[in-house]
Nucleic acid binder design. Structure first.
Lengths: 197, 197
DNA sequence: TATCTCGCATACGGACCGTATGTCAAGTTT
DNA sequence: AAACTTGACATACGGTCCGTATGCGAGATA
């Protein structure tokens, strides 16, 4: 049977986002050509502007998708830990490892903030941040962490993890640097503990 | 007397960097037009490409200048503290406050990494990072901090400070958020202490 | 089945970047 | 000091890219 109109429209959006994700990751946002990108998806720029408004809108959609995936994964890993404190550490390590993916780095960590502005103002509301913030809030309520501002702690932790990943990725020997970064992250995070280890 | 050739060349470079700094800060790197920018400096694109190679080269020169200024200021503030530990905390707070400057944010924190790549690979070698790294090394040698990897600690600390600044700047009430961020930063940093407070 | 809707393709205009070429003053040589 | 050389900068051109305005044809509606 012939496909319904809303079906094909959704399929096209998926195709465009997938093609954009690949192009943005390989060439970077500004160097990615909308003509090539849409042709790669079997469409033209017409479809793109109709669905996403402009180039920024497309990037926002891609970032939203990736951010959501990352947050889900981090939350899952965190929930698997023995207690909430180990969960927070595991989440942090998970972010560091995820940020080693070149696709994540280029799109979410570099071009995303530069083009869309501060992550906390993204349409997706930055799910990653919310996940760690709620983890921090739980730990504060349990009396495990100092009563610092949860939002502040989450922002600084994610910032530290993010920068660790950029450092690792740029280093010549990522595998030897990763444990150093994770250990430093654990040290920093333990500064939030009410009762030092 | 007639100006020597190297004199005018240096003057022109200064003019171009100043104009670029203004344009990049106001419009962002990609939206800044080279024609407008050079005209604002009383020159043309010819001068620009002769001196800096391309648009990226100009951004690199601007970032280098700003990074150097920031590192000098942070070091000065850190040296003014009572001891090295307080110095490290003061440096961190200084970075957070400097990063509140829209010019710093747009050029050094957002467009810089997106266009030039990881800061540790910048031509300027990122003076800011080096300053905090040497501060961390001193404190480790003194037995005040845990023997973590100095580079890792410096990267994570600067990353945390950086992200704190982005958060503050994006918030509606920066003045009320700043102290929260600074306090969270001090908590995190104290996680590096060998003997908890 | 006839009409309407709208998602997408096509065509156009404007802007911008990087390079290739021209030009003229500052330095150099004789 | 006069002719010559160098090179810093201006000018002109080609190619690419983005965003919009217009056209079309397949699904939706009655």
């Amino acid at each position: 049977m012939a496909k319904s109109r809303s079906e094909t429209m959704l399929e096209n959006r998926v195709k465009l986002i997938a093609a954009a994700r690949k192009a943005f990751a390989q060439k970077g946002y500004s160097a990615a050509s909308m003509d090539e990108l849409t042709a790669d998806a079997g469409l033209t720029r017409g479809a793109l502007y109709h669905n996403f408004g402009d180039k920024r809108g497309l990037l926002a959609a891609v970032v939203d998708q990736m951010d959501t995936e990352m947050a889900a994964r981090a939350q899952e890993i965190g929930a698997r830990a023995d207690d909430d404190w180990q969960g927070l550490l595991a989440e942090g390590a998970a972010y560091i490892e995820m940020a080693l993916d070149p696709e994540v780095q280029r799109i979410v960590l570099l071009d995303g903030p530069a083009v869309l502005g501060d992550p906390s103002q993204w349409p997706s509301q930055n799910s990653c941040l919310q996940v760690t913030r709620s983890a921090v809030e739980r730990l504060i309520a349990q009396g495990i962490l100092k009563p610092v501002d949860a939002e502040a702690a989450a922002r600084l932790l994610s910032g530290a993890a993010l920068n660790a990943a950029l450092w690792i990725a740029a280093s010549e020997n990522p595998q030897s640097v990763l444990p150093k970064a994770v250990e430093a992250f654990r040290s920093l995070a333990s500064g939030l503990l009410l009762k030092p280890l």
